[in-house]
Nucleic acid binder design. Structure first.
Length: 565
RNA sequence: GCGUCUGUAGCUCAAUCGGAUAGAGCAACGGCCUUCUAAGCCGUAGGUUGCAGGUUCAAUUCCUGCCAGGCGCACCA
């Protein structure tokens, strides 16, 4: 890690720790040991670069006023460190640290030194992570709600990789079962209809236009050869053809959305390899399952589920849950340290039963994280659009991508915490193209590129300037705006770590907006390219550093960083 | 009824492990292009953080109860 981070993380904390023990050895403090020392970046100007609430938390133990504790601590901090400008006690007992400009300028050197690696880190425990997401049933094109899961899962994967984990992305395909049969029959009926037959659509059958589209393709390719055959012998073909077509669409939609899964895992594969039976047998030998009323149940209640769950129905059919158990066993057996599942809120009832199942299988449920994202409320002109795949009334991800654009759609989904529901107003999203915050961020990047272009046109050797920065020349950066930008830049690595820890990519969108805001403001008030050679060089280093951080952040979100707009 | 998520400015949302004066964008109003991209900048206005208690030096944050909304509670997938 950077020298600077070590300074902040270790030395400042260390100094405080030493101060505490010093006070204790002098008998000023009666307690023993040190509480956890937290450094935070104050929200307001004039409160220092870092602050600690150490004195506040010590107050209770020592039974002394926090400010008094603080002043003891500060006088114990006699060890003079060159990069501390001054220390103040403020408010109820905060200790505020003001650091020298030179300390901050070091950040710019780090950024230029690390480039795309700035913000990356190495975890204490590197994990092999499998993120399963989207996994929508392949019975129709992806709709917009899947877009949220897709954007979230992909950003999370990039984020976890940035902090040093090995991440694979997987899509679980439900390619067998009653839904598949229903899909095949829906297409089959539409096929007959194309030859002039009057058909009665099945109860609950898929009725979207796309079914007719698939039927037409079959008609084109196969003519009337299925017309005289009975349904039973035709169905396997219609089911497979429909499935293949839809999976092709889904892959294409996701690819165009910037997401390519490492693996598409078929449910049927589990059955072919007998893994479902093996998993159920395994539970039986572990006495985690039992027979009741002719069905086979897993005792999930002992691990916190509301009720026990059926895995084999009394008619002999295995439930979906049985496949899920086998699937998760399969995942763990492939050697992953951590499983992450991203579910829509309509599946939140599965959390306890899946965790219980994992535990019944003998794995630690803590190694499986189920992330719930609340649903997307689709609106059109403020009025809710009811979506049903079967009725064929839904808005596809593709439609939104074509109308709103990939970057804006991704950003829109990632801007909100995943556990709040999200209103997606189609008219607003289209109309708001120019107002979407993603453009604000991307525009900042484009502006920075423009500065570099102009500088080069004016014969500045920008590359040379950037490649050879040193603290001395950067000392020309003295404006409060410039230092504010640098402080924000220096927070980037910590932001990435905490976002990854919390699995909350939305924090990055807010960070990027703040950074873009500072840049736009700075751009308006200060010119980078001036007659002042030293100043221009220093500012070129600054703006290119901003550009690197914007690029790195946008990359994690899966967005482009355009050079021109 | 039980479980779960949410409730913060007119709207959509932030708020670092419980910290100082709760912040942005949009919408509204008033300014700024002869100078590196005006998809921008500056300013004004906007709040009893759903309600009521509790915990403590400190609560948007934690706890309890209530109110409102979303979602889920199958031998469906």
């Amino acid at each position: 890690m950077s020298i600077q981070e070590n300074l902040k993380e270790k030395t400042l904390v260390q100094l405080l720790k030493e101060a505490v023990s010093h006070c204790q050895s002098q008998g000023i403090f009666t307690g023993t040991g040190t509480p956890k020392i937290v450094l935070e970046v104050p929200k307001h100007d004039g409160q220092g670069d870092f602050a600690t609430t150490l004195a506040l938390s010590l107050a209770k133990i020592e039974k002394k006023p926090p400010r008094e504790i603080a002043s003891h601590l500060v006088s114990a901090l006699t060890d003079q460190v060159s990069w501390i400008e001054k220390i103040e006690i403020a408010g109820p007992g905060y200790i505020n640290f003001f650091l020298t400009n030179a300390y901050w300028l070091q950040t710019l050197l780090n950024i230029h030194d690390q480039q795309t690696h700035f913000g990356k880190s190495t975890p204490k425990n590197k994990e092999r992570v499998l993120i399963e997401f989207v996994s929508a049933n392949p019975t129709g094109p992806l709709h917009i709600a899947s877009g949220r899961a897709a954007a979230l899962g992909d950003a999370l994967a990039r984020l976890l990789e940035t902090v040093g984990h090995k991440v694979d992305c997987e899509y679980y395909l439900n390619d067998i079962g009653t839904q598949m049969t229903l899909l095949g029959r829906s297409t089959y009926l539409r096929y007959r209809e194309l030859f002039g037959e009057t058909v009665t659509l099945l109860e609950g059958s898929y009725q979207g236009e796309y079914i007719i589209e698939i039927a037409e393709t079959i008609k084109k390719q196969k003519g009337d050869q299925y017309l005289d055959r009975d349904e039973a012998s035709s169905l396997p073909f219609f089911t497979k053809f429909s499935f293949d077509t839809i999976v092709f669409w889904i892959k294409k939609d996701l690819h165009d959305f910037g997401i390519d899964f490492d693996r598409w895992f078929s449910e049927s594969e589990l059955h072919e390899k007998n893994e479902v039976d093996l998993a159920l047998d395994f539970l039986k030998t572990k006495t985690m399952s039992y027979q009741k009323n002719g069905a086979s149940w897993v005792n999930t209640t002992q691990f916190g589920d509301d009720k026990d769950r059926v895995v084999v129905r009394s008619n002999g059919q295995k439930t979906y849950f049985a496949s899920d158990i086998a699937y998760h066993k399969n995942k763990f057996d492939r050697g992953y340290d951590r499983l992450i599942n991203i579910f829509g809120a309509d599946h939140h009832g599965y959390i306890n039963r899946m965790k219980a199942a994992v535990q019944a299988l003998g794995y630690n449920p803590k190694n499986m994280t189920i992330l719930i994202h609340q649903l997307v409320n689709l609106l059109r002109d403020g009025k809710p659009v009811k979506m049903s795949k079967r009725a064929g009334t839904f808005v596809t991800l593709r439609e939104v991508l074509e109308e709103v654009g990939v970057d804006a759609t991704r950003f829109f989904f990632l801007m909100r915490r995943s556990d709040t529901s999200l209103d997606f107003d189609l008219e607003l999203a289209k109309k708001a193209t120019n107002e979407n915050p993603v453009f604000y961020v991307q525009y900042a990047h484009a502006r920075l590129c423009s500065i570099v272009r102009v500088a080069k046109e004016k014969a500045w050797d920008v590359d040379h300037v950037i490649q050879n920065p040193n603290l001395q020349s950067l000392a020309a950066l003295t404006l409060p705006e410039e230092l504010a930008i640098i402080r924000l830049l220096s927070q980037y690595p910590e932001l990435i770590k905490s976002s990854a820890e919390a699995m909350e990519p939305h924090r990055i969108t807010f960070y990027l907006q703040s950074l873009a805001g500072l840049l736009h403001s700075y751009y308006f008030s200060c010119r980078v390219i001036t007659e002042d050679v030293a100043l221009t060089k220093a500012r070129l280093v600054l703006v290119t550093a901003i550009r690197i951080v914007l690029q790195n952040g946008l990359h994690i979100l899966g967005l482009t960083a355009p050079e021109e707009m």
